[in-house]
Structure formats: C-alpha cells, structure tokens
Design a protein around this nucleic acid. Structure first.
Lengths: 336, 336
DNA sequence: CTGTTAGCGCTTTCAG
DNA sequence: CTGAAAGCGCTAACAG
C-alpha cells in the first residue's frame, strides 16, 4: 500500500506538505506542489479514507436510503441524488431498506460506523424515529425524503400528497365516478395517511359518501394483494366501486393484473389511477393515469439540501421543500 | 462519540477485552463478556469502521458496480447481490457507472480509498482493464459480472450470449424470417461482440446471407437511436429486414417506439426480439419476445463467488460461471 | 511556505 | 483469560 510517507520520501518533502497538496489546503509553492504531484502520479497513490476520517471526521460520503430499489420512482431519485453528489464532490452510498425497519436500522449502524457525512432517507415508517434519533445522537445530519416521521423535526423534501390526491380524484369525479375505492399503503407511513385523509376530504367536498368498505389497507410493495382482493370481491354488486385510486404505482399495477385475471376490464368496467409514474423508458404502451412526482428532482434537490446542512450553509431552522405533482391522464381511467 | 474506552471504563476492563467481545475473538469469561455487553448496550456503542480498518485491513464491505441503475436487469442483479451479502454478514455499496469509464474509474478510486474487501463489477468496456488493474494493484479481489474484459483473467459470472443469441435467432428463422437485422451494443463490450459473432454464425449455419447493411452499431443505453434509424430507413424496400434482433431490452424498447412513430407495426410489419427481459412487475402487458437471463442469480451467485475469494475459500485458479438464458416468446415476434 | 508533534479509535503482538 | 504497548495513515495545531 502506498502511503503519504512514500510520497514524501520520493518528493523529498514532509508528509504534511503532501497532505497539503492532496487537500489543496494551506500554501504550497508551485515547485514543491509539482514535485509532490509527480510522485503521487508515479506511485499511483490513493489516499486512505479511513485514516483520513479518523483525524478529520469528514468522509465526503453521503448516503441515500430508499425503500425499494425495484421501484422506478426510487431508481430515478437515486439518479438525481447521484448526479448532484458527484457534481459537488461527494460520493454516494446507496442503501435499500426494502420497507423493512430492521434492515434500515442495520444500514444506519453501518453508515455511522463508516462515518458518512450525511444521509438522505426515505424512512420506512414511523418507527424509523428510533433510527433517526441514532443518527442525531451521532450528529449526522439527515434529510427526510418523500415521507415524514411523527415526532421528528428535520429538513424535508417531499411531494404534495394532498394536491396530488385531489387532482386524481377530481379527474375521476369529473369523469362521473361516485363510488371510488382507495387501496392504500400502510397507515404508519405518512404519505399513506395524507393520501387517505385527502381522499376522505375530497369525497366529502364533492358531496360523495365515504364508505369504509371502499378503503383498503395494503402495502406499498403490495404484499397482501390476495387479502385485499378477497375483500373487494366480497362486496355486493351495487357497492362495487367504479374506480380505484391506488396509493402508488406498484399497487396499481398489481390491481390491474388481478382485475384482468378475473376478466374485469380496465377502464371499461373499472377505472384505475395512482400516485407515481412508471418509467416511460420501459413502457411500450403507457396506459396508467397517474399523478407523477418529479422523482429525479427529489434526489437532486435532496442532496443539495443535505450538503448545505453538512457544510453548515443551511439556515438553523429546518427547511421543507414541497415538489409539485402532475396529473397525467392516460387510458386506465374513463368516464362512467 | 462513544469509543471502546468509554465501554472499557464503564465495564471496568481493558479496551482490549472490549475489542475481544466485539469481535468474538480470543477467550473472554462469561462474566466479563456480560459486563461489556451491558455497557455497550447502555452507551449505544457503534464501532468505528475507519479505526478498525486502519489496523485490521478488513471492512466487511463489498461493492457492486453496475452500468445502468435504471435498467431493470441491473436492478435485479442488485437485489440478488444485496441479499447474499447481507446473508453472509457483509455490507454492499452500490455504484452506478453509467456505462462511463471515467465514472467507473472514480468509483474504483473511492472504493480503494474506502477499503472495500472486494468488488463485483460489470465493466463498462474493454478499457476498464486499466481500472481493474488498479484493483489488482491494491490487492482487492473482483469478479467480472455479465461482461468479460480483453486481457483480464479473473473469476467471472455471466450469461450465455451465444446460446441466447442462437435461441432467439432460431425462433425468428423458424417463423420464416430470412432478413434479420441486429441493432447491437458497442463492440468494445464483450457481450456485444459475442452476440454479433453468434448472429453472423447462426445466419450462416442456416444458409442465410449476412449483410453488413443489416448490422447496426448502437449503445446499450441506445444513445444514438436517431443515427441508427436514419440508416435503417435509408434502406431500399427489398433490403428492409422483416425482423430485428436488439442486443438488449433498452434498444428493443426504443426501436419499437421509433417504428411505431413511423406507423410501422410490430409484429405485423416487422418482428422485434431482444436480450434481457423487462420487469414483469411493472409490465401490464408483456409484449416483447426476449431471451431472459437470471438477473437475480447473477448478483446472488456473484457475491457468493466474491466472498469465497475474499475469505480465501476459492480455488487458486479462476472460476467461470455461465448462467443459462431462457427464450420467452411473446407477441413482438410473428411469422412472416 | 514548510516541518514537528501528537493523537484519532482500534487491533496486533506480546506479556502476564 | 486479561492487559500494556505500539502503530495503522493521516491531519490539526502549532512552530519555525
């Protein structure tokens, strides 16, 4: 392993001088800088991040924790985060918590252990509070992405669940739908709560009845789709919804597949709309009506906020950035 | 920050004893172990990975470098890698080189700097050789995933480009196609070379003419689709292919989209097939005929091989694992 | 502008 | 079974 000492010997300067040219800190004469750089080049020297971190307590590594690496929404968040991090001279560690609080906790321990400078995190649920407190204890700044957590005050970047929910629901209502079901994520995730609250509120605003039978609790990875479907199918004919609002893209896809299995046509027999788009790059035939959120910007701006915080350029009070969502009407929704 | 000294004070033992219980190394009496564990619990101690690495030269961190985080193929590789790493007590750093040799090189430097124990890498192209040599210089074991590199001997895990290519082409030929075009990835990527060679060979075996006009050079992220298309469209009517073999899923999708823009129907006017599937979880209407590779297993088994190597349980000679691919016939291919 | 000293948190090595 | 000493590679703080 090549160390700073090897360089200092070759360049005939002190290790400290080498450190200075590597870090571009302090004053070094052009001549010595050149000598040192030549030696670094020659020996193919790569600084040891661990040694560096041990004294400097700065790693220039950030982390992004997402909850589902297979979801194109998060994959785009990751791209945005990566681009911004790179642009500002940081490295990004990508972690996939899989909506699992234990995996999340494992990753947080690793990140603390590794000494990341900050983390941009989509908390898996409200219980993430404990993990976030650990971060705070270790003085590692974090930004909440996409989801809020009860009892945690922090910088936040997320979409507008209320506006988005209102937009899709109004779209359905304009189409003449009056019996609209919601298949939601788990209520210990803030976005699910907000979507459900706004669902109820919007129906009421429009003078439509809110029926408990049409509110289904699922999971953002839609793990319990059989259960949801058996409930849905046990509904009486006249209670059957004419439209379904799925709380995210995965739930929507699975719902449509299940419906088709039973020869229920979308949108002829039932409309389906959802939050979050799929990746158009992989969709030959964009079909779903969605409220699309600017995923790339979630990551891009999130990392910007994080670096502001890490480098202490952020105001002391927490910032909340709310990104707008956009209704994209396609073929999965039709008038009644 | 809580250190081993804080624990040692609280537990009234030496730091060394604390180290021993953390690492489960050496002999420690049940009584002292309990005291130490209690202290660790109480103070919420998390070992400092940097300090640890500095002496022990082991990080228990592995890295996976992929070339396109938006491609569902790689996203599944990542899932497999992650699962295996976790299972064996390692952490995984996911890096996205974006098919860019410079980004790749940046990441490799970071990984060396961070001190990862090993890396599972999809090299972006043959020039990756330089980056891989750097890894070797720093004695960091690596496994080549999906792609080989000219002049690099190493453990490898990849699909069978030849068998796969043969399978789709035979499928097309059985359907009666005789004028089959290939839109390939760049020839400085091993898989593209293999697919092209096998394309030529298979046509010849079946007594079909190989025409240079029907061989198109693109990019796995299909960055130059306009160029490819203007060439394709400039072909005479009677030279026009009746089928296109796309070297990967992205090229296929883009190709179909471009064809549709010009009102050329798939498969009625032209069949399109490709390597690598899309994510069925996000596909309401699976349409593409593909040769699917077991992406998850690429990652899963790849990490297994890597850990074998890292822990010196691998044979000294390099291992090559070739995973089978499967033809999935759907609607994008039809008889002539 | 350059160098010296000390120490980050941990583990290896060697003694008890 | 437990501990003391030394040092991993680097940089902060000071000195010159």
């Amino acid at each position: 392993m090549v160390t700073i000492y090897d360089i200092s010997k070759l360049a005939e300067v002190s290790p400290m001088t080498v450190s200075r040219v590597i870090n571009q800190s302090g004053k070094v004469s052009e001549a010595t800088r050149a000598k040192v750089e030549k030696a670094i080049e020659e020996l193919n020297y790569i600084p040891n991040a661990s040694a560096r971190y041990l004294t400097a307590k700065k790693s220039k590594i950030l982390s992004l924790i997402i909850t589902d690496i297979n979801n194109p929404f998060f994959t785009k968040v990751a791209r945005g985060a990566e681009d911004k991090a790179k642009q500002l001279g940081y490295r990004l560690m990508l972690c996939n918590s899989d909506e699992d609080i234990h995996k999340e906790s494992d990753y947080i321990n690793m990140l603390i252990s590794t000494g990341v400078d900050g983390v941009l995190i989509t908390p898996s649920e409200d219980k993430s509070k404990k993990n976030l407190r650990t971060l705070t204890k270790y003085k590692i700044p974090f930004i909440l992405l996409d989801r809020k957590v009860e009892g945690i005050a922090s910088d936040e970047i997320h979409g507008d669940s209320q506006e988005g929910t209102r937009k899709v629901l109004q779209h359905l209502i304009e189409l003449g739908h009056e019996k609209i079901a919601i298949i939601n994520g788990p209520l210990d995730v803030s976005t699910a709560r907000e979507r459900q609250d706004t669902y109820i509120e919007t129906l009421q605003t429009h003078g439509l009845p809110v029926k408990d039978d049409l509110i289904f609790q699922s999971h953002y990875k839609n793990k319990n789709k059989d259960e949801v479907f058996s409930k849905l199918l046990s509904l009486d004919k006249d209670e059957w919804p004419t439209a379904i609002f799925a709380a995210n893209n995965i739930i929507a896809i699975n719902t449509i597949k299940e419906l088709r299995k039973r020869s229920i046509r979308v949108p002829e027999d039932i409309s389906v709309v959802c939050f979050d788009d799929l990746d158009p790059a992989y969709d030959l035939d964009p079909f779903l009506t969605v409220v699309s959120q600017p995923a790339y910007q979630f990551g891009y701006t999130g990392i910007q906020m994080l670096i502001d915080r890490v480098e202490k350029n952020a105001p002391s009070e927490f910032r909340k950035i709310v990104l707008p969502s956009e209704l994209i009407v396609r073929r999965s929704s039709a008038s009644i």
